[in-house]
Design a protein around this nucleic acid. Structure first.
Lengths: 345, 345
DNA sequence: TTGTATGCGTTATCAT
DNA sequence: ATGATAACGCATACAA
């Protein structure tokens, strides 16, 4: 009824139907304070009857403001991102922005392409855990407001996790339980997040007099964690801190396959807290509050877009250890590691 | 170097720099076959030097084609969607489309708003598991090409899962193991997907002479599944088919809390296969191939946009049972349920 | 308070 | 094969 044909009416049709100029219709939707309440109301009524909706494309071309933001992530399917995306989306929505989602598939060059391709369609970018090199990031940031998540580049607005606090708590927790030898199973070496976490782990371990070995997981995935288990078992560690929850989960699976019990034979600590209590046993992990990170990034971007200013804010989100059930005291005899079940008898 | 200032050059600047008309520059990027190879190359060179990128907004306004598609989902954080989104995103990218992501937060009215707000900026929609009522969906579909995922509305192009096949296999599998009383823990009653699955379960159970009780999980989440457990234990079922993997996982957690062992005391079957083997024990589930659904939906939309035709395709993606470790024969004595541990002694 | 006229960057129509 | 020019739908100086 409201829309006789498939086409949505334009501002011109509303104007003539309401007996006003196009400018008045425009103002009705963009700057109603310039109009008499009566006019606005009348125009609104006509517009509603006709099913008129301001054309955002035309608006964008005219004003230079797209009303959109872009969120670019390395892998949507990584459980770290959905909560972040969800929260960002919700905040953007409140602020009246629609969001483009880009998945770079962990490839820096894909990030670069996405960034340039949609630049004209968005007012700003949020780059989550970008793999792109610093120089390129700066180039893009020079064109449009750009917020970084999980990457600390001087001079750019960014939202970070307080990795140090969480990791320190985790290592202290393990030390308190009596662990002396622990492993850090790392994520992508090129990842800033990984470097931060590894560095923090090394520092905390040193301070507490623990030995820490780093074991690479080629990919920050379940499979990556699983694949790291053989090398993990070649060491004599009694506890493992994983790059993230996904890797931790993979490690747990790999251990289970080999009959190594968690936490009896090996304590595990994850990072991110995105699996909640959804592992078995429920995972002890460092909560990174990724949803909050997403929300804060959008807020930051919104402020920049509103003010036109360019504050190089550096938001740090606190992290903290959440102790669940994958950590406990090490077994008495740590000697015969490598064949833990045999050693137990 | 390539970009002296923050602003990207317009077609006019490229034109004058290359000593050609704006039309020629335009053709260089949209219809190069109309130009001499020499001209295209020359213009391209100048454009590259200046850092020119065609402005998609202006393009959209001029052509009516936005070069974008919208993907709307009820909840990004539901593990069913990330693989779907990821696959859709990848396909869209190949076809040169950027994608808007909308999260309706399971609210029909939010879907409605998103749909109308973004309409002008996209060439078509993909609506995954829409909660919106059929009439409204049709209204939107009349304006722009719209593909449905997980919703069967006559006359609209849609991508569905062959729920019947998977559920039938699941029930048959349980029957074969010796289960006689099974439960279906349902998802959102308003959800078409839930109705399909429940219907299929009822039908399959009847055919095999099993009794099936339906137990509601208010929300299709981990918590929802967990909350359904008390009611589940009040019945005398020995096996449960859950609305989806998330609910199944919640049920497993709820059972574990109460000392009910899976699969010894209760067999569990999920749906979707999005948790892979990431539960403990690894979940027996119906694989729904949601990534493929996302990809197919984009392909379908692409075809429609290319051809301008409006084929009301109905793509059905096969599903099949994946047996892992949460299903086994029922315990001998089923009498004293409700306090399964006591009964065991 | 409202109307008039111009421009946003591009494509498409019509010439040449 | 290329150039001139009018849309596309809207916002906004400027005028009234």
């Amino acid at each position: 009824m409201t829309t006789p044909k498939n086409r949505v009416p334009t501002i011109t049709e509303v104007a003539s139907a309401a007996g006003v100029s196009r400018a008045t219709v425009s103002r009705t939707f963009s700057r109603p304070e310039l109009l008499t309440p009566e006019t606005t109301e009348r125009v609104r009524a006509v517009a509603a009857r006709l099913g008129y909706v301001p054309n955002q494309v035309a608006r964008a071309l005219s004003t230079g403001r797209a009303g959109n933001i872009a969120l670019i992530v390395p892998d949507i399917a990584n459980p770290f991102f959905p909560p972040l995306i969800r929260a960002a989306q919700a905040r953007a929505d409140e602020a009246g922005y629609a969001v483009f989602l880009g998945d770079s598939d962990e490839k820096p060059e894909r990030e670069d392409i996405l960034l340039t391709k949609i630049a004209a369609q968005v007012d700003g970018f949020i780059l989550a855990s970008p793999r792109l090199d610093e120089q390129r990031v700066r180039v893009h940031a020079a064109r449009r407001p750009l917020i970084l998540i999980n990457r600390d580049i001087e001079g750019l607005p960014r939202v970070l996790m307080d990795v140090d606090a969480g990791i320190t708590q985790a290592i202290a927790h393990l030390a308190e339980l009596g662990h002396r030898h622990i492993a850090y199973v790392s994520g992508p070496p090129a990842s800033w997040a990984n470097q931060q976490r590894q560095k923090a782990a090394v520092k905390a371990a040193k301070r507490l007099g623990l030995t820490l070995v780093a074991i690479p997981a080629n990919h920050p995935t379940y499979q990556g964690g699983q694949a790291a288990v053989p090398e993990l078992l070649r060491t004599d560690v009694t506890a493992t801190v994983a790059f993230d929850d996904l890797v931790a989960q993979g490690i747990m699976a790999g251990l289970a396959e080999r009959g190594v019990q968690v936490p009896r034979d090996m304590s595990i600590v994850g990072f991110d807290d995105v699996l909640a209590a959804r592992t078995y046993p429920p995972l002890t992990t460092v909560a990174a509050h990724c949803a909050e990170a997403g929300a804060r990034a959008v807020e930051l971007l919104g402020e920049i877009l509103q003010s036109g200013r360019h504050p190089t804010a550096r938001v740090v989100i606190p992290t903290e250890l959440v102790v669940r059930a994958t950590t406990s005291q090490p077994r008495r005899r740590q000697a015969g590691r490598g064949k833990p079940l045999a050693a137990a008898s």
